[in-house]
């Protein structure tokens, strides 16, 4: 199966470890992974801030880059939801504006074959035990778009439960938003920060060392709040946990050049 990794612009720029972890994990599971170099951004930030028309060229670009692959895998619930839920809506809106079916037709091929990472593992590859080893106490935060738009359900938990050495503890108020919300984090900074603080306090109450999620943008907000509140916890993307093995207790960051 020829699978394209849609890493997302945020992960590409700020969280390359997550990308390396996805490549390592999928390769270990026998998947041939490609990273199309022309990929950029799905357009979610534009769309959700009210710039739908600016998001359209980005969606078309996405379709150009990924259209030929059998499956597109992304380690982001919200970017996955952008393609699966909102690309069809963009097509409908263009039609309603009297611009015909062109946009809908252009975007249609990528919609059904885009998978969030945990969906791809559980639904397409049919695995829950990915052979990972991670000897830490972990709590899991289901991010909103993964939870509600994609309906990831208990897939991430099943994957985490099968990880050797990992102790999974339940997060109180797990399904409450962490307060990131893209531009919401700066447009309504006070409320966003209050939500983030409550999320971190709930996470701390579990006694876990690691707060895990399937979306680094939420983890950027939660992690930034954690360091500011001087908590001992660390935010870790689920891909990095699933990629870790006994040979490499942590995901390898080898080959990173010194800056």
């Amino acid at each position: 199966m020829r699978v394209a990794l849609f890493l997302t612009c945020v992960n590409d720029t700020l969280y390359p470890d997550t990308g390396r972890a996805v490549v390592k994990l999928l390769t270990r599971l026998g998947v041939e992974v490609d990273f199309p170099m022309a990929q950029t951004c799905c357009g979610q930030a534009h769309y959700n801030t009210g710039y739908r028309h600016e998001a359209e060229p980005l969606a078309r670009h996405f379709s150009d880059v990924f259209g030929e692959y059998e499956a597109i895998v992304t380690p982001s619930g919200s970017c996955g939801a952008m393609v699966r839920e909102l690309y069809p809506r963009m097509g409908e809106r263009a039609r309603a504006e009297g611009r015909g079916d062109t946009l809908a037709a252009t975007l249609a091929p990528v919609v059904p074959k885009t998978y969030e990472l945990t969906e791809f593992l559980v639904d397409v590859l049919g695995v829950t035990d990915v052979g990972a080893y991670y000897p830490h106490k972990v709590t899991y935060h289901p991010t909103c778009h993964g939870l509600r738009s994609l309906g990831l359900g208990d897939r991430p938990l099943k994957l985490l439960q099968a990880v050797k050495g990992l102790e999974l503890v339940e997060l109180p108020g797990a399904d409450e938003c962490c307060g990131f919300g893209g531009t919401f984090a700066v447009k309504n900074a006070d409320v966003s920060a209050a939500m983030g603080t409550d999320k971190v306090r709930n996470a701390e109450s579990t006694g876990a060392e690691v707060l895990c999620a399937a979306d680094n943008s939420c983890l950027m907000h939660i992690g930034g709040t954690m360091t500011r509140l001087h908590t001992e916890m660390r935010p870790v993307h689920i891909a990095e946990i699933l990629a870790a093995t006994e040979a490499s207790a942590e995901v390898s960051t080898e080959e990173e050049p010194s800056a």
């Binding site: 890493l7 992960n11 590409d12 720029t13 700020l14 969280y15 390359p16 470890d17 990308g19 390396r20 490549v23 990273f35 170099m37 984090a185 900074a189 920060a193 983030g196 603080t197 950027m220 907000h221 992690g223 930034g224 709040t225 360091t227 500011r228 080959e255 990173e256 050049p257 010194s258 800056a259």
Partner: peptide, 16 residues
Amino acid sequence: TRDLPTVPAEPFRDWW
């Protein structure tokens, strides 16, 4: 209220 993420030594695409 939040620390900024640290920018990595290279983006993923360069590593790839």
